[in-house]
């Protein structure tokens, strides 16, 4: 039975289907049979989940607020793309533009233009389904993760070593949570971090109790 302690980046990629990282996170879950997180990971995961959920909704929320402003009766995909072009810049503009086509095809269908009320309804349904999907994923994740016992040791020497390797405060706490759990667990525990700084930093600290330290490059995206 292979066990692993997971960091927040991996879990966020698992829940939100963020391109190649999502497939790698699925691969990590398939590789192990028991998964652990600490209360620090849970807190950070919750915070990042809710912010990302809000980011996903924001394009459609912006669109909803804009829709009545042009005061037109019919809406076409072109109107939504124009909205994205006018209201966003750089990457966000491209991301918003690209999301119009799958949204229109699924929630509007083959119509080339629709009435305002139908448009309003399509956006509401899409927003609801997006929220159901991400929250169902989150709830499923919570059901399969096991929380480690609360760490009582600060491990100041290891903390200093991790700091000297450039690992940030929050990531150091999480790494030490995993280390504490691994030291007190009878079976071997791997540490999997999709955060490059944390992964490289932990790799360079030999005192950590993990059986193995793995990063996103250790898992396939297929």
């Amino acid at each position: 039975m292979d066990k692993a302690f997971f960091d927040t980046c991996l879990l966020i990629a698992y829940v939100f289907s963020i391109n190649s990282l999502h497939l790698k996170s699925e691969s990590a879950f398939n590789h192990y049979s028991e998964y652990f997180w600490s209360s620090n990971v849970v807190e950070e995961f919750d915070r990042r989940f809710y912010k990302k959920q809000k980011n996903v909704r924001s394009f459609f929320n912006d669109l909803e607020r804009y829709l009545e402003s042009p005061n037109q009766e019919f809406y076409r995909p072109h109107d939504l793309i124009n909205f994205a072009l006018k209201n966003y810049t750089d990457r966000k503009k491209d991301d918003a533009k690209s999301s119009v086509e799958p949204f229109w095809n699924r929630y509007v269908g083959f119509e080339s233009q629709i009435l305002f009320d139908a448009m309003k309804n399509a956006i509401s349904l899409c927003l609801k389904d997006l929220s159901i999907d991400s929250n169902r994923n989150k709830s499923f994740l919570e059901s399969i993760m096991q929380t480690t016992p609360q760490r009582t040791d600060d491990y100041p020497d290891i903390d200093l070593m991790l700091k000297s390797q450039g690992v940030k405060d929050a990531d150091r706490s999480i790494t030490l949570d995993g280390h504490d759990f691994a030291c007190n667990c009878k079976s071997p525990i791997d540490f999997v971090s999709f955060d490059d700084e944390c992964y490289i930093g932990a790799k360079n600290v030999e005192l950590l109790c993990f059986n193995s330290i793995k990063g996103k490059y250790d898992f396939n995206a297929s």
């Binding site: 289907s17 963020i18 999502h22 996903v56 999301s99 799958p102 609801k128 389904d129 997006l130 999907d133």
Partner: peptide, 21 residues
């Protein structure tokens, strides 16, 4: 309750575009 259009692949595609890598 999910809408009649609920489709995980489509929702993943939209999420991918809006969150990026």
């Amino acid at each position: 309750i999910p809408s009649e259009y609920y489709d995980r692949d489509v929702l993943n595609e939209i999420t991918n575009h809006l969150l990026g890598d």
